[in-house]
Amino acid sequence: MFLLPAPPRAALASAVLVVLAGGCAAPAPGGAAAFPLAEGLLLLESGDPAAAGALLERDPLPAGALARFHAEALAARVHAVASLGAAFRTEITTAGGRGGPLGGPPSEAATRPSPTSHLVALLYHAAQARAQTAAAAADQQAGGDAILPAALAALEVEEIDAELELLSAVAYARLGFRAEVDSFVARSPALVDLEGFPAALDRRRVPAALRPWVGEMVSHHLRSRDEVAAYRFGVLAIEGAERFGHALPPEVVAEIERWIVAESRYLFVCPESQTPFLPGARRSPKSGIPHLEYVPVERPRGGGR
């Protein structure tokens, strides 16, 4: 998903055993070679962000700027993945449960996964990494990447910095902080180009399950600027969410659909059958033309807005 092809199961198991065997040892010294970057990457790529997160927390951070940059960037990716249905941090919910007013005793409490904790942690680690981008880039120029795992040494620091900026923007979007998201999209012209959108996400190695969120935040940003483009990114987000296993919460999908149906200044209709956009459907029931190819027409008076 991120950087490496899926490793063979036996090789992965060996790597994990090596890592676990080292778990009882004293903390590693601060060198990049000693910090378990490669092992953490393997665990994350194998779909175990919890083990990767625990491993990356185990030792002191490495000393060099480049290795430290990669350690924090990898931790940010771990929390990005964990926030999408693989949360290993938990919190106690009291919804529906405290017995009386805020002073009353708890009558029900349950532990649940905490994606919010992971989103906050993502922002923390991304900020830690990005604070060292300049020093890490200089380190890389000077050949400091020789001690990194091959998969990381091949990456440009600036590319990872752009990836982290995008992951952070998605975290802000998921927390509902639109101003931060708008300011990010406004300075990312590559993201608002529909044709170049997939390539822009590939360059930033955005995990598949996060891509609908990027579509959603671009769509939302464009509503006040280019409603036709906002429609298309909205449709991309909805379809992507379905393809990647409901990556957007139902209320977010409903909000996009509500904007399309009731709040845009246009009606979006099938170019052949003139059937309007239909929430929940993916194409015209008459012509079979997908929603993405619908065209805008002026909304009749009294027809919304």
């Binding site: 919910t93 919804a95 919010t116 904790s117 906050v120």
Partner: peptide
């Protein structure tokens, strides 16, 4: 309302602080 508020505080690194009712 007490049944819905379900508050949590997240420190900068994501550490979760659980809510304590005022009576406690």
């Amino acid at each position: 309302v007490a049944e819905a508020i379900d508050p949590h505080l997240y420190l900068q690194d994501g550490t979760v602080l659980e809510w304590v009712p005022a009576g406690e």
